[in-house]
Amino acid sequence: MKLRKSLEKGAEGLLLFCALLSTLAVLFITIFLFHRGLPLFRKVPIAEFLFSTDWSPTAASPKYGILSFILGSFYVTALALAFAVPVGLAVGVYLAELAEKKASRAIRSAVEILAGIPSVVYGLFGIAIISAVTRTLFGGTGYSLLSASIVLAIMTLPTIINVTEVSLRAVPHELKEGSLALGATHWQTIYKVLVPTARSGIIAGVVLGMGRAIGETMAVLMVGGNAPIPPSGLTGKVRTLTMNIITDMSYAKDDHLTSLFATGIVLFVFILTLNLVVQLALKRTISSVEGGQGA
């Protein structure tokens, strides 16, 4: 009896330790990032860092302005989602509601494989196919905002598809049956009942996809063109925050290195804000759905 109790205590302690470990990891990464990055603002005003597009870290009088990369990250992510969300939603709905068993199994395993492909392979595919196609269709060099967004859209698809499907399946059966019983067609049921009910789950999926898009480095590095200037348009070259860090990381020193950590801080704050905003939005939709049901 005594032994069992102490074993249980031990197991509990171990679990607590693991839980603390992951929390500590987040904490330490945050502290480390800010500790290494913040000293930059003693030499470079924050406003100049955030709102200047002049990035010349190795010049005689170095300039650290990352606006181009903030814009780059923003454009690339927005455009990638604009491509991926409609397609991902459609595939998710199809898998959850319309596909026959055989077809849905085949599609699902294809999507799973898509999720498992390493990003460097997406990059190679982007160089070989996507940049060539966008060059032929839209002109420019092919190493562009557009190419990077398309590659990212393909990479974020699996997340959006999976989460959409799962949240559609999680909608209580009574709702669907009730809708059908009231005479709605299957299609009306999907877009009037199922999708709105699963909304919060779907939004969560989109946010996960957005996180992947903002954080992705290798694939965009290979097709983005990587010029340290703001994108001149869809076919213009783009460098994102992550690309900027990886391009200079291997050799940067002193203030230049610090500026890369500061770039990391901006990325970190970006993603944090994104998560918070979405969590707030989710809470609101959930409570409004619940309130609606109560009324």
Binding site: T58, A59, A60, I127, S131, A132, R135, T141, G142, Y143, L221, G225, N226, A227, P228, I229, K237, R239, T247
Partner: peptide, 26 residues
């Protein structure tokens, strides 16, 4: 002082320059 045009594709290796020049018209 190095002042290359910034409107340039940036490649990280000799091999990448070769690949990008070979595949990009102009």
């Amino acid at each position: 002082a190095i002042a290359y045009t910034k409107d340039a594709i940036v490649a990280k290796e000799n091999g990448e320059v070769a690949a990008k020049v070979a595949s990009t018209p102009g």
